[in-house]
Nucleic acid binder design. Structure first.
Ligand SMILES: [Mn+2]
Ligand SMILES: [Mn+2]
Ligand SMILES: [Mn+2]
Ligand SMILES: [Mn+2]
Lengths: 239, 239
DNA sequence: CATAAAAGTTAGGATATACTAAACTAAGAG
DNA sequence: CTCTTAGTTTAGTATATCCTAACTTTTATG
């Protein structure tokens, strides 16, 4: 059904291909868990066959962007990490711009940004950032790396990690699936919202959470894609 | 020395590759002269070897986007023309948006738009157009095709076509070369400006034009890239 | 620890693009 | 109506990606 569209472009200074950039971003994200990015995981995230990922990893390694340990997975080198962070900055600023200035819904920007991020120059992205007053978070609560490549990499708990009775503030959520985002929006879950765990079923069962006074039973899969911070301490941003 | 960057992306519905789109646009533009687009001309415009163009033309023909007559050149089919016009619409709206909303100079937008046009969805482009109040011309005076694919294709005279003593209004100019655009801006030549031909040297010699009361000798090459319309009230008849 | 399942890699092929060199065609100069 | 040549196309390669099938390593299991 979804016919894979051919290839991707290079254009920026370093002349990395759009595809290569997306691989780096995927690896960056998976590495946040501490472990190197596994071939199959990358393949799944990008919707590509594992064999193809093996090939690309070798190419990225040849370019000095990742370090691959055969049968073990890949880690970004400094250069690769820097390239990934630049791409992520572009992605998140573009998302912010589209939502703030062009009326995009937070559930539809990711897809558009996923393409624009490869064609937008640094100049354009910086203009967008400036127009928005240099935002520090994207519409999904994800921190925007600085142009120097600094970013908050704290590992956050997800709703699935909370114990019954705990209250927490929603910080961010996975932004890939627009249906998922609409589901969350329907419950009032968005960055800054407060959620409380009312009940938990055992055996990986659903978590019942209270949001805006209303209870919602939520599957573990969904709950684990919503990242939170223990309530008390106030972070920046609107609450 | 400038190593050609690999390939280009597809993404839109019809799933045309960015490269293919640029070929169609190039062919569209060259066809405006009446003749089919010549291989070498396309090659020069896109900075690609003629042999490569031959290959691409065959592919585009196979896709039903162009009609190629061996050794003669290519013409767009209806489908190809429609795709070209859609791309041109995207390009020109993006240019307009960048200049109006993000402070780009008219001499620097073409390059950025040349990349973004391939990654921007129709949705995005229409949002930009709406934000600008549906502009009908881009920053270089070029007409923006409607979303239905209608566009003013009048052939305009260039300054090089004017006789001594004639006054005309600048309508549009070639936007590919930013240095050229800065040169024009330095003389006060922009869409809407009025120019008068003061002198002409024979043998393809320079044209001396008066703009804002100042005379400038301009080479034929430059003069023929600035398109004009006989001054408002009195139209010198020709189609 | 012996195996089978899971994960990952290699082999072999396909497509999209480009390039250079060589061959070919069309068109103008005698 | 030839010959030269500018313009085109074909042949042979190369790179970037992706895929399926087959094979190899790791890991999980009894
Ligand atoms: Mn992307
Ligand atoms: Mn996001
Ligand atoms: Mn383009
Ligand atoms: Mn333009």
């Amino acid at each position: 059904m979804k016919k894979k569209a051919p290839v991707a472009p290079a254009m920026r200074a370093g002349a990395l291909t759009g595809q290569a950039e997306d691989y780096l971003k995927a690896i960056y994200e998976m590495e946040q868990g501490g472990e190197p990015a596994a071939t199959t995981a990358i393949a799944e995230l990008l919707g590509i066959a594992p064999a193809s990922v093996s090939g690309m990893l070798q190419r990225l390694a040849r370019l000095g962007l990742v370090q691959v340990e055969r049968y073990r997975g890949a880690r970004l080198t400094h250069i690769g990490r820097s390239a990934a962070l630049q791409l992520i900055r572009r992605h998140r600023i573009i998302e912010s711009y589209l939502v703030t200035r062009l009326g995009y819904g937070w559930d539809e920007v990711d897809e558009e940004a996923e393409r624009l991020e490869h064609g937008a120059s640094t100049d354009l992205v910086e203009r967008m950032a400036a127009a928005l007053g240099h935002p520090t978070e994207d519409p999904h609560g994800a921190p925007i790396p600085t142009s120097e490549g600094l970013v908050d990499e704290r590992r956050l708990q997800s709703i699935a990690d909370l114990a019954v009775g705990q209250t927490a503030r929603v910080v961010r959520m996975s932004d890939r699936d627009s249906e998922f985002l609409r589901y969350l929006a329907g419950m009032g879950i968005r960055p800054g919202a407060t959620v409380k765990v009312a009940e938990r079923e055992p055996f990986e069962g659903p978590v019942t959470i209270t949001v805006r006074g209303k209870k919602h039973p939520v599957g573990i899969a969904a709950a684990s894609r919503v990242y939170v911070e223990s309530a008390p301490a106030r972070r920046r941003g609107r609450g």
